[in-house]
Design a protein around this nucleic acid. Structure first.
Lengths: 141, 141
DNA sequence: CTCCATGCAAAATATTTGCAATTCA
DNA sequence: TGAATTGCAAATATTTTGCATGGAG
């Protein structure tokens, strides 16, 4: 989804479109990897130098609420955000360059339900992430 | 694994056995759910009132290093620790009472490898967690 | 022209570090 | 006894909140 659509969605929720929000949205929409609030601040300031870190926090909060971005959990920390995929998809993350790719995992739902049954749980949700090395980083070695 | 074994393992790594560590170890070893450092502090102080929060942080760090506990990531936060299972197992967590249960997922490794191949990644590791409601909590409703 | 949004400063949290006193081995 | 460990206090790091100003609609 392009950053234009993100802006339309924000507007349709009654949020105003400001230069600060545009800078954060465009930064997030085009990033191939998950970004921390500080990362976003650094990158988006190139486009809108007056941007404050607090506004980054507040904008990410709204984008998460609208499911335009999602929080990504990693060993190094759990405060990085990535553009959200449509539907329920899972993440494959390169441990070297941090590039993130989504993949479908529909095949897994039955397996997860069975695991639940075995332990007398009703499974409501799941969370899956793969970590590895992408082709580009593999070549560089 | 009993807390006695944890103490033996700590000792075998050259760490000293103190009342503070015993209190933290026993608290972690017997907890059915993941605990934050503050949780551990509160619980372990019943056994050893002089316990400082800093010591809890430092002890959890060592226990994680020895793979006796692992960090658990959840919506509410990523700073809770749980006794580690033997081998590579995955977590099933009750969203109501927070009880955590391990399950085997050996069947999944091939699937994960295939996903990686499809995206030209060499998959090194994965994280999987299921969330649901356990039998006991289901009954209470 | 009316609020919503912003950025700053300050507050609230969470975690780590320096250090003198203590205690395990 | 000597080095590891402890708890306190203080330093960092991260995130949130209060508030006066500015800007979108």
């Amino acid at each position: 989804m392009s950053s234009e659509n993100w802006l339309v969605k924000l507007r349709s929720q009654g949020y105003r479109l400001t230069d600060a929000r545009r800078a954060v949205v465009e930064t997030m929409a085009q990033s191939p990897r998950a970004l921390t609030p500080a990362d976003v601040h650094d990158l988006a300031k190139e486009q809108y130098p007056a941007l404050g870190l607090v506004t980054v926090y507040r904008t990410l909060e709204k984008l998460e609420e609208l499911h335009l971005v999602q929080r990504v959990h990693q060993e190094q920390g759990c405060n990085a955000y990535l553009a959200h995929a449509d539907g329920h998809q899972h993440l494959l993350i390169c441990e070297s360059c941090k590039k993130a790719v989504y993949f479908e995992g529909d095949d897994l739902d039955d397996f997860f339900s069975d695991v639940g049954k075995k332990h007398n749980f009703t499974v409501k949700d799941h969370w899956l992430q793969l970590f590895g090395i992408c082709e580009d980083c593999e070549k560089e070695k």
